[in-house]
Write a protein that binds this DNA or RNA. Structure first.
Lengths: 345, 345
DNA sequence: CTGAAAGCGCTAACAT
DNA sequence: ATGTTAGCGCTTTCAG
């Protein structure tokens, strides 16, 4: 069977408390060098590893952090998930992924998850509203760090200033001569009061231009799992319908890169050339945007820095819950490519 | 604090064993209808949820399954991960993701993971070799179901017959007049004895054609995490170097779609037209392949069926470890698009 | 510096 | 049909 603390203790001729102390490196107690060495050696040669369940029961801490994400899809979500797994596991924690995209019962689901296997802390990615709802309903006792473009300010957070990135994008389009600049956005609830959209509205107004929306029906984007048809397909369909009916804008700025890729394909379908006939800018910095021809302009988000910072914040908070609120705001970066500008490709 | 079984028991005026029995629905015991109803009601109104750590300690089962994957990246890995999470969580299990891509210490890492929080079972995706290594070293006691194109036959498995898909692809290229058909493949260890490659070798030989390889250096693909430059970039570079030096093949068949996308871009860089000058076929069925222009031909894998089947197999095995080996082999499907054929797009 | 013992919340014999 | 009790493997007072 599995090796227990007792097994190690017997073999090393000490009590299990001693083994526990050695292996956890408790500082307050002094243990003789020789005992330490002996115990460590025995533990290693027996290939001993503490049973986390038992430890969790004894300490009340699970050494697990929850990762809240809207979905797990081959887009920026998975980039962030991969990074968080990598970073957090290095610190000896496990990661438990919770998807909040089953919109209808998200709260209830979260409630279950939280109660069944209490986590020591939560990293929430782009889920400000969900976080606020959980807080309001007293669902969570574990500390939360919120990160991404849609952060609540009620917790520690590592935000990304998408507003500035989006403003840069609109300005760039204007400066390269575009006037009819449309914004493509999913109509679903989880993106209410989106900074990209606010930037779009503000900058368009300042420039004296008329906002123009291309919507993706809420129904399509509301329950996005690996099983569904993706946002790309819906974006493609939307543009295929929209442009013949309304004529072509000079530029389309998209809520994210998945949509931009769908739009890209629709424009090719319709025989419109980028950047000559129409300019295209996405958002998020998904790597594949660079592989289209022309490459698709986008707003690159500093995901790695964001994840590392968030985990640092969470560790601080777990260690001492009384520290003042931790805040950071990272800047994304507009990358102009061939889809919106004749210069580069 | 958290609600315990005892709290519920007190409030319902029963013992905790009764509560436990009611909530777990033990069949062998009979409990009065009224008690059942009362306990359930109290539990619900107190928002009681069992502590998994305590349960795990008592039962020796964690209600957690390990998901072994090579990496977490915005490619087919994340499609599969999203599906597994979805499917497995619905059965009340937690999922613990383990990445085996840190090649050097994969075994050691796995060893640690396995011992620290024992899982009830493991779903291993595309990791046959790693699975075999773990088996050989007696690292695993939990049952394993291996799924994907690289399965070991030593466990229950849900394989995908990529050999046939790849053979179809080569045949298709030949039939549309291609003769110099190159195969692009990463040179790293985790794909030794790959069915695609075997199919390539066999079919080329049968057709009397000379195999031709475009390699991606092992160093690049060996430690693929979210932090690294992706395979796409390496594929692009490889082709940018290869074709000027060796002239252009009539067709390139790629180990996966990420590579195909990199190749796509390199061909555009070099001014080569698809499908006129050269044909391109990828493998895996990543959705974005459809959004390039021309759309990239690929081999679509039945991921959803695979995941569901694998979980079924694992549940069977967990329930009764003595059942005979469970095997399934699913067929992928070649999808011919504009990158390899003038007809469709 | 080390050991003994209580207890974390739950399940599963074993009683009744 | 329900209650009592003995652990599961670990941490952590409290003794010594």
């Amino acid at each position: 069977m599995r090796i227990t603390l007792q097994d190690v203790a017997s073999k090393a001729n000490v009590s299990c408390s001693t083994v526990s102390r050695v292996l956890n490196g408790s500082d307050d107690r002094h243990i003789s060098e020789s005992t330490i060495r002996r115990v460590q050696e025995v533990a290693r040669e027996m290939n001993y590893h503490a049973n986390r369940a038992a430890r969790a029961l004894a300490t009340g801490r699970t050494n697990t952090v929850g990762l809240w994400t809207y979905a797990v899809t081959p887009a920026y979500y998975s980039v962030v998930i991969g990074m968080v797994l990598h970073i957090v596991k290095k610190s000896g924690y496990e990661v438990q992924i919770m998807q909040s995209c089953q919109a209808a019962n998200a709260l209830q689901q979260t409630n279950m998850d939280l109660h069944s296997w209490p986590v020591d802390g939560i990293i929430a990615f782009d889920n400000g509203q969900h976080v606020e709802a959980c807080l309001k309903n007293n669902l969570v006792t574990a500390p939360i760090v919120n990160m991404g473009a849609h952060c609540t300010k009620q917790t520690d957070y590592v935000g990304i200033d998408v507003y500035s990135g989006a403003a840069d994008a609109i300005t760039h389009l204007f400066q390269s001569g575009r006037r009819r600049i449309a914004y493509m956005v999913p109509g679903n609830a989880h993106v209410q009061s989106d900074p990209r959209e606010n930037a779009y509205i503000d900058v368009m107004q300042r420039l004296g231009l008329q906002p123009e929306y291309i919507y993706i029906p809420e129904a399509y984007t509301n329950s996005y799992t690996g099983f569904n048809k993706s946002w790309r397909a819906h974006a493609r369909n939307a543009v295929q319908d929209y442009i013949p009916a309304n004529g072509s804008p000079d530029a389309i700025f998209c809520y994210n890169d998945e949509l931009a890729i769908g739009v890209y394909r629709a424009l090719r379908d319709l025989g419109l050339r980028m950047p000559d006939d129409i300019a295209l800018v996405g958002c998020d910095g998904m790597e594949e945007t660079e592989y289209f021809d022309p490459a698709i302009s986008t707003i690159i988000q500093p995901y790695e820095a964001m994840c590392k910072r968030a985990w640092k914040f969470l560790q601080n908070r777990i260690e001492d819950s009384s520290i003042p609120q931790q805040k950071a705001l990272l800047k994304p970066k507009l990358v102009v490519r061939g889809s919106s500008c004749r210069v580069s490709s």
